[in-house]
Design a protein around this nucleic acid. Structure first.
Lengths: 111, 111
DNA sequence: CATCAATACCTAGACCTTCGAGGCAACGTC
DNA sequence: GACGTTGCCTCGAAGGTCTAGGTATTGATG
């Protein structure tokens, strides 16, 4: 039995990654950390979800990877938003507004 | 490769069902129709998702089922919110606010 | 110097949900 | 009699996420 938070908003990982990369290239580990910090720990990205997601998205051509350096001077795989990822991001944000709006209106309706 | 809308908001089905039942008992088919109409078709519940979800939630004690009649006078399985389901609903709505707020702030931030 | 935490990547397997596709039955309409 | 709607169900595939491991490097701590 999943916890109340665990599974809400499954399926948002991709769009969160794409949005993070829309501000510029970042390496995988930093994407996860950034999302956690930016959301005040509301969003937690497990590495076992993050790396497979990056791999999927690269295979789909949404992002492009290259080996580089982290801010701390370590070997890191840096991801960059590709053109298909950018339009995918737009489509997903549109879908997010529609769907989260619909869900929110239902959940916040006085019952 | 899932469509942009398909998988966003996975995991919200349970809370949507619970919320629907918070306004009173309803049979399964009607829950699905009601969610689709109320959301102006933004939310579409496939029967292959709906009935297994109801079954799960009944087994978990969140809802209770009994055979009755639909508004059209047909045999229908009527579900009712049980006490554990009511507190689960509260917890999930709280989680929804936190998480959808966090996701929304990230996605709507000017990039 | 040994140890530990943090950084940074990855994988395998289990788990769960969702969906698509099908089936069954009853009713009303054309 | 055929068809659309209502109303329920099940199976298997597909897909994502998590847990739990693993590797390697660096810096701090004892």
């Amino acid at each position: 039995m999943p916890g109340p938070e665990t599974d809400l908003l499954q399926g948002t990982l991709d769009v969160l990654i794409l949005k993070t990369l829309s501000w510029g290239p970042r390496h995988g580990y930093a994407i996860g950390k950034w999302l956690e910090e930016t959301s005040s720990e509301a969003i937690r990205i497990e590495e076992g979800s993050l790396y497979p997601a990056l791999y999927r998205m690269e295979k789909r051509g949404w992002i492009e990877a290259s080996w580089g350096m982290s801010e701390l001077g370590r070997r890191a795989k840096v991801y960059e938003l590709a053109a298909p990822g950018r339009s995918r991001l737009r489509a997903e944000i549109t879908a997010w507004r529609r769907l989260s709006g619909a869900v929110g209106r239902i959940l916040e309706a006085r019952g």
